[in-house]
Structure formats: structure tokens, C-alpha cells
Design a protein around this nucleic acid. Sequence first.
DNA 1: CGATTTTGTGCAATCGATTGCAGCGATCTT
DNA 2: AAGATCGCTGCAATCGATTGCACAAAATCG
Lengths: 341, 341
Amino acid sequence: MTDLVRIPPNLQAVADAAGVHRSTASRALNPATRHLVAGDVAGRIIETARQLGYRRDAIAASLRTGRSRLVGVVVPDIANPVFGPILRGIESALASAGYSCLLANVGRDEAEQMRLVEELMERRVDGLILATARKDDPVLGACLDAGTPTVLVNRAEERERASAVVSDDRAGMILAVRHLASLGHRRIGHLAGPQDLSTGALRREGFVAAIRQLGLADENAWIEAAAYTREAGEVAAAEILSRFDVTAIAAANDLLALGAYRAVAARGLRCPADISIVGHNDMPLVDMVEPPLTTIRISHLRMGEEAARLLLRGIESPGSKPERIVTEPELVRRASTAPPR
Amino acid sequence: MTDLVRIPPNLQAVADAAGVHRSTASRALNPATRHLVAGDVAGRIIETARQLGYRRDAIAASLRTGRSRLVGVVVPDIANPVFGPILRGIESALASAGYSCLLANVGRDEAEQMRLVEELMERRVDGLILATARKDDPVLGACLDAGTPTVLVNRAEERERASAVVSDDRAGMILAVRHLASLGHRRIGHLAGPQDLSTGALRREGFVAAIRQLGLADENAWIEAAAYTREAGEVAAAEILSRFDVTAIAAANDLLALGAYRAVAARGLRCPADISIVGHNDMPLVDMVEPPLTTIRISHLRMGEEAARLLLRGIESPGSKPERIVTEPELVRRASTAPPR
DNA sequence: CGATTTTGTGCAATCGATTGCAGCGATCTT
DNA sequence: AAGATCGCTGCAATCGATTGCACAAAATCG
């Protein structure tokens, strides 16, 4: 009855109990090296380990091997519905390869971001996934300088110094504008996202390109929202409505689109009767809002999975070329868009 | 120019460069032990470390100290909007205490849950936060047996063998039913959550209690949904509508409530004109659905923060009594409830 | 049957930081 | 002035697993 505070068995204890050397026990317990040990001996060791309730110490193993099987995941806001699916995709792909996620939630403050990444490095993460990239991201620079394999997800840089998994934001916005044009809209405004993010900039580019391609009026009818939030969307949408004579708004993001719903209502207009609105992302629940939001669907889950896979490849074979995976967005027609009156 | 693959400096290197012993460098670099070192020497060491770009190896430190400053966080589904805020609360509270989150997303399979927790233990987490607890949870049992400080969040067990942070689910549902009764509803149904979860069971209890307190009809007018999803909600709500003659439905969860919207529409009824519906959680966006959902608000962010704080306390002072924090839910009136016709 | 290869196990160094203990010189006490 | 105290630094053990190398025993070959 002296096991009140039982000291957990280590490899030495297992080896002693099985009557072999530490090193033999280590080999027997590791599937990758098990073939070096005689079958019966390995069996005995494994059984002894089980009986003693032996649990491998990943920390000690990491110290010796230099690999932590840990990946740092940096997101701008876990509470934002689009990052949930991304995170889940990352987590599941990593878990099935024996890696775990170290989660870091960061604000927009760059110094803070640096501090957090630094802390992840101290923990000797084998790699990093950043969902926070700006168009020219100093944090990414720091990761690369440190020689840590890094992958961007959702947002990317312009230059390709790191692997990235993104949606084709430009094409997505073109899809949105074409849809509006096909309904008969000729005067379309763009509720743009923050221009220092690739999503914001590329979707705006897509907007301009689509307007030109289709020979529509005023490729400059866009306003940049201060952030990807409903509140910022409402403010910017109000400005679009007051400054431009448009019948439709293509928003860079679903939250912005929902903000636009408010601005439209505030002016006594109705969607889609007076103003059509199309979003971007197809977040959970936007099919239930009123009117159900027409939007551009992005598979965030798959993006997360692909990012994890890319990172794992980068970890296995260091020095491999950066790769870019671009997923195809898709138009989801609901009820927030209709022909102009 | 031989620093192509520069070997990162360790403590020894810093000590050598500063002309002191490893141990002195260690003490100087650690704020908690810095006072043991002469001011000028400490300054020199810190400066040398900075110049060399020294980065402390948390793995090695963990091995020596036995503390990893890592907390395992187990959630049932990161993509579910309620867990985002919880996670953010946990992360921010932990981060400000120097701890990081190891994220594990698990399904309902118990063996898989055990495997994942086992893996977290191998990584020598200092504590665990489970958002997955069932009413009698074997996984929690395993954590407790292993002597790992563990805190439950959002869902709890009946017996108090571990600290927990939950909403007052019973009171929340009473709030919902009273609200309906105050509008004049007398025949109310309950769209219950899974009964093996504390949230599902307690909210149902609250429903029964409220019906009795208010002297209303049929405390048995409830159906259990198979899961907290819109689909399961739609199925169960359809059954309620076909089996009971009710004018209102109190749902155990917002997603279930949204499923009920569908079921109501499918029967050619309207909400709230024909059937009032109240949800639970106040998830993001439920204020934008049609009709805007009347629901019970729970501060998931704060729950996450409190859980982290409780865990930190448990880590600091092992063997302390389990504690339970119950947050007060609040009714949010929107447009899905109205007087019966 | 001797020589050679194969197979299996043990030995000991190693990863990098932390910390109890001892020792040294300087200051303080009586 | 001898002894006690204090502040600072160095020494060396330690955490637990992994792995290159050496070596012995067994198996194979000519």
C-alpha cells in the first residue's frame, strides 16, 4: 500500500523487469526498430511494459531525436467561423501522421505575433502553419530565417517564398460579379476586405477584372472595410450606397455581406428587391439568414488538410521547393441576389 | 561564410562566450533566478545571449523540471461555432500564464478518445481541459487515475470528481420556458439534446421542472435528438409536432432550434405566428437568421477563461478540492417567440 | 570443420537545461 | 581578530529515451 504517489515507470524499469537492457527495450517498443529484436524477447518486453503501465516520455524522446512531432498553428481568431473548419482539417491530417497542434491565437499586433512565434520555436515545433499572413509578412520572414518549415493557409503572400494553400480569390470574385451581371446588373459595387491581406487584395482585383471583362461601369466603385467584421461591413456598405449608384454589392466576405444587409435595411431598401448582395466563404449558417445568402463556397476543411499535408512533406524533405495549392471556389445561389428592377 | 547550416547556440555556447559557467548563464537568463547572479554579470550574459540569437530549449527544460507548460484541450468538434469562443478563452488565459494549448479534436468514439488522451499524456501535459465529458465519463476517470489535473468545460459529470465550468443549464431552460409561458403559451414541447451529456439531461430536467412549477400541461412532451445538429433537430422537431399538440418549442441548443425552423416550415407552419421557438447558446449569427432566434445566452468565452484559470490553480496546488463554477445564463429576446394565436 | 556472415544484445555517449551543494572571498559580529 | 554570515559562482548529477558501435553467439558457406 505504498503506491499512494507511485512513480511512473520509465524505460529502465521496463528493461529491468523484462531482464534486458534499456536499449533493447527501446527498440522493442518502437515499431520502427522492433525488427532488430528477437521476436520472443520483443513480445516479453511489450507485455511487461503493458503490465507496468509504461508510458513513453515524448519529451525525452524529442530531446534526443531533435524532433518534437509538434506543429505550431497560428490563427487570427479562433472564434471566427471560417477558422474552425480550417483548424479541424489541419488537426485531423496532422493527427493521422502522429503530429499534434500547438495552437496560438494572435491579434493584429505584429510584435505580439513575433513573440508568439518565438515561443513556438522555443518549444521546437517541427513546423508552422500560419493563417495570419499579410501580403508581405515579416513573421513569415522570421520563420523562414529560422529554418522552420512553414506553410500559409487561407491567406498568402504575393511572392512564393513559402508553400501556401489558398482559394482562387480572384476567380471567386469574378464568379460573383458574373453571376450578378448574368442577372442583369450593370452597376455593381464592391465591399472590399482589408487590402493588406491577400484575400482582400485579390478579391478586389477580381472585381476590377470582371467589371472590365464584362464592359460594365465603374471599376472603382469599391470601398475597403476596416476589418472582416459585420460592423466594418455595415459602415463600408453604407458608404458604397451613398457614394455610388449601384444595384448590387459583391462583398469580399460573408461577414461583410451580413453587415451590408444592415446598411441596406438602414437606408430603407430591401435585399434582393432593391439591392442584390453576394458574399464569400459560405460560412456555416449563412444559408439560414434572411435572405439566405448567395455566396462563393470555399472548402476550408480541405484547405486545412492540404496545408497539413504540404507541411508534413516539407518536414520530411527539407529544402524542397515551395508549392502552391489553389482550390477552386464555387458559386452557391441562394436568395440574396435577383435581377435589378 | 561557413554558417550555411549554422548550429543554433545552446546555453553552453552563451556561457562560454560570456565567460561564465552554464549554470550561471541559466540563472541569469531565468527571471525567477536572476537575483542569484550579480547584476553586471547577468547583464553581460543576457546581452551575449541576445547577440548570439540564443533561444531557450523548452524541451530540455521540460525534461529536467518535469513540467511542460503544456495543456491538452479536448473538444468534440472545433468546427462547431460554440467551441471557437471557448477555445479562445482557454488559449488567452493560458497564454498569459506562459502555457500553450495542445489541441485534440475527437469524435464520439470512446476508444479513440482514450488513445488521444493517452497521447497527450505521453507529451507530459501539465493538465487537461475536456469539453467532451459525458455524464459518466471513463476518459475523465483515466485522466484522474493518471493524476493529471483535469477540468471540464461546458459539459460536466453529475458527481464532482473534477473541477468544472458550466452554464446553469437547468436554470437556462427554466428561463426559456418561463419566457414562453409569459407570452401565454400553455402547451410547450422540448426538443432535447443527447441525454448522455449533462447539457442535454439538465436542460431537459429544467424543462420538466418549469412545466411543473408553472402548472402547465404535459411535462413529457419532449423528444431526444440524436445529436446537436440541425439535421437531428429537424427530425426530432418533426416528431414533436406530429405527436404533441404544442404552440411552442424550447430547444436544448441553437442548432436544434434551427432544425426546428425547417420542421415547422415543412409542415406549412410559420414561426413565430404558429409555433414559437427558443434556442440555447446564442451562437454567432443566430441574430441574423429568419426569424432572429430568441435564445439563452451563455458566455462561452468567459467559460473558457474560467476553465483555464481553474486548471492553472489545480496545477499550482495539486490535491486541491474540485471546484465548480456555474455561470448565469440570460434570455435574449428576438423574434422567434410571440404569443400563441 | 574453419571461415564468414548474420543476428541479437549490451555499452555508453548524447540531447540541453536545471538545481542542490560546496566553496570562495568579502563583509559583519562580538 | 576569530568566527559567523552572506552573495555569488562553479561543479556535477539528473531528467528519460535513442542510437552508433562493439561484440558475442548463431547460422551459413565453401
